[in-house]
Structure formats: structure tokens, C-alpha cells
Design a protein around this nucleic acid. Sequence first.
DNA 1: ACAGGTTGGTTCAATGACCGAACCGACAAT
DNA 2: ATTGTCGGTTCGGTCATTGAACCAACCTGT
Lengths: 178, 178
Amino acid sequence: MALGKDYATQECSIARALEIVGERWTLLVVRDALYGVRRYNDFLVHLGIPRAVLAARLQTLTGEGILEKRRYQQSPPRDEYVPTERGIALWPTLRSLGLWGREHFTETQLRYFRHVDCGTEIGPYGECPACRTVVPIEDVVMEPGPGADRDPADPVSRALLRPKRLLEPLEPLEAEPT
Amino acid sequence: MALGKDYATQECSIARALEIVGERWTLLVVRDALYGVRRYNDFLVHLGIPRAVLAARLQTLTGEGILEKRRYQQSPPRDEYVPTERGIALWPTLRSLGLWGREHFTETQLRYFRHVDCGTEIGPYGECPACRTVVPIEDVVMEPGPGADRDPADPVSRALLRPKRLLEPLEPLEAEPT
DNA sequence: ACAGGTTGGTTCAATGACCGAACCGACAAT
DNA sequence: ATTGTCGGTTCGGTCATTGAACCAACCTGT
């Protein structure tokens, strides 16, 4: 993570994890990837991240096996970045970080996460309180909450406004009627 | 968090959380606080963090209500930094981040976390698999695993080597016999 | 054939965060 | 009076981040 790059003296898996995903923007890139963002330009407009930083982060994330760069069309050559198992494994951390942020620093709820089978909101440990099972990430549906901006500027935010499963790519991104 | 300081365009509780605890060192300071570190100097030697950065982090953490600065002796005036409820609420996030780091980037286990009532190792969701309950942080005992350094240089690491409950202050810190 | 747009980058100067070392003030012990 | 400890602050140098500009490959429309 920047500068010293490592937490040299730390003998700790938390420090180890932070060396990899602790840099600025990194976890937000992973979050977006789990939300279904795949393409360089979509990350760019959704995050408002400087291009150089995005390129650097995508490179280290693919280097660490958290995202995978995958060619999805030959001409013109276009790549997408897809979360690997290792990236997906960050979901509990991101969920609990988001929960903490919401409970302590946000007035209104910005998004709901629900169990696709029953519509129940996911509990604090990632479980469905109704079904009493841990909900795998691909069975989580995300939808906007009362605090969400109904008319965001960028098309990616707008696409994320309609309910969708996590991990499901946000492909079509059809042009809007003005 | 540094530079832009905020993730301006992000309307997201994860981004909000990262604005507060996403800076370099911050989460390691909180981790140490949960492990029982209380005093400026103990953070300093245990983390190997620059003094100025530590001072800055402690200030923002107390400012955000994550740690509380508390005078514990009058002369000479000495303060300790204690995690508040808001700081304690970061435990699930830190635990799951550490779990991710261990599973994906570490060969040997550096620490065990066990349920004090039964000695069972805490499960991936913070639960005790034997008792089938979520274990509150003060009922978690931390002890070194096979990968831990048996003879670390700084006294704080050495104090953390013997099993102790989380949150329990690591006070005495007796001088060592040479 | 050519202009212009889209995508996915790289380069660069300026800014700001972080680093380590030095310094400082309050107090205690000798 | 000197030395040591604790909890900082200050400071110059280094390194990461930023935003803007540039670039190359390819496509589309005319």
C-alpha cells in the first residue's frame, strides 16, 4: 500500500491483506467488480478515479489474482475485468465494511441487499434471517434504498439503479433516450 | 482519505467507511486497539509507524468517535486510547479481512481466535461452531499459531504472545529479565 | 478516403501524503 | 544538575496521487 509498500514489521494476516487491497481506490474497484462493472471505461466514469490510478490498480489486482483480464471481443480488441474466486472472497469484508459505514456514518439507507429466493434483507453476518442460511453472493440482489440518488449523472450509476444480482455483468448499458 | 480526502462521487456506505478508515495505517491502529494496545508508545513500537502519522491517526480516530482518549494518571499526565463501541463494531470487518489475508496470502496460521467458553476456533462468520452462537469480541481469546515468531523484537509483540482476551488492556508490560 | 468518435491506455508536472530524524516540553528519578 | 521517559511537533526529502494532455488502434459515417 503505497510508500513503504509493506507493513514490514507486521506479522499479521490483516496487515498482509492491507498491503494488497489497502491502497486508495483498490477496494472500491473490487466493490464495483462485484457489483457487475467489467470494463475500464465503466470503472472510470463510475468511480471518478484518475485514469493512471485505475490502470495501476487493475494491474495489481489482476497480478494478485483478484480480478482476471479477459478478452471478450477480438476486433477491436477489448478486455473485461472479472472477479476471480479470490476477489469474490472479499465480499464478506466489503459487506461488513459497508454495514459499519451505514450504521455509523449514514442517515438513510442507500442500497438494500436481499436474498433472491425470498426477498428478505441480508443480515449482519451475510445470512438470510428467514431461510437461516448463508447467502452466496450470486444469490444477493442489490436494489436502491430510500437514500439513493434517483437521477445520477453517469450511466453506470443509472444502470445500477435497477435491481440486479451481484456478479451479474452490467453489460448491455443501452443508450438512453434523451 | 488522503489527497482528494473524499470519494466525492461515491454514494455508498463502503466509500463512506473508507474515507474514515481507509488511510494507510488506520485499520492497523484499530486492530491494535482491539488487541489491547492502549498507549502511544506501544502503538509506536508495535506498528513501526512514523510518530507524526500515528499522532494524526489517533486524532482522527478519536475525532470520529472510534477511539476515546482517556487520562489514566495525572502526574505526569498520561492518556490512553480506548476503542469505543464504534471502534469495536469494526471487529467483524477486521476479522474477515484477516481471514481473507490468511486464506489467500499466508502459508501458516499466525494466530488463533478461540471462543473463551469452549476453546473452539471462531468460524468464518464470527460464530462458535460448537456453541452455535455469535461470539462477542470480549469472549474471543487470541493466541499465537504455528507461524508466529516466537521471539519478536519489541515488547508489545512479546506481550501479545501469551493468550489473552481481545479488548483486555495489555497493561503491566513488565520489564524483562535480560 | 477521410473526419471524428470510442476504448484503453501512457506520460507529465504539480500537489499532497508519508517517511525518518531531530527537536521539544513536562515530569520523574538520581 | 543531569539523565531518562513519554507524548508529542517540526522539517526536509521522497514517493504516491491527481488531472490534463497525449496517443494508438479500431470503428462508423459520409
